[in-house]
């Protein structure tokens, strides 16, 4: 399969992630859509690394995965704290830093 198709799949994944972040209200689903966007970027990196024959892209994907793991841990901890304080995870109702 030629490289532009991989880039196209990556673009489609990224678009789905963007639409999810914009449209949904559940904070957990918004986080999952952010993961989707990070993975779209990863797929583009790997495709480019394969196309150029260099390892740098794959190493960068490794870093992106690490940072994504850290981000998910912190984000989910924030969501749990939010739910404990507010009894909701609807992002439209959580529009103030304090209540």
């Amino acid at each position: 399969m030629p490289i532009p198709y991989y880039l196209a799949i990556s673009g489609i994944l990224f678009t789905v992630g963007v639409v999810g972040v914009l449209v949904r209200r559940n904070a957990i689903i918004i986080f999952m859509c952010i993961e989707l966007m990070l993975n779209a970027a990863n797929l583009a990196f790997v495709a480019a690394a394969h196309s150029l024959g260099k390892m740098n892209g794959q190493v960068f994907v490794f870093f992106v995965m690490t940072v994504a793991a850290a981000e998910v841990a912190v984000g989910l901890a924030i969501i749990v704290t939010l739910f404990r304080n507010r009894e909701t995870i609807d992002v439209d109702e959580v529009n103030l830093m304090k209540h």
Binding site: N42, V46, A47, A49, Q58, V61
Partner: peptide, 9 residues
């Protein structure tokens, strides 16, 4: 990733 020769990833 496997198709793109990145088995570790």
């Amino acid at each position: 990733y496997l198709q793109l020769q990145a088995p570790f990833l």
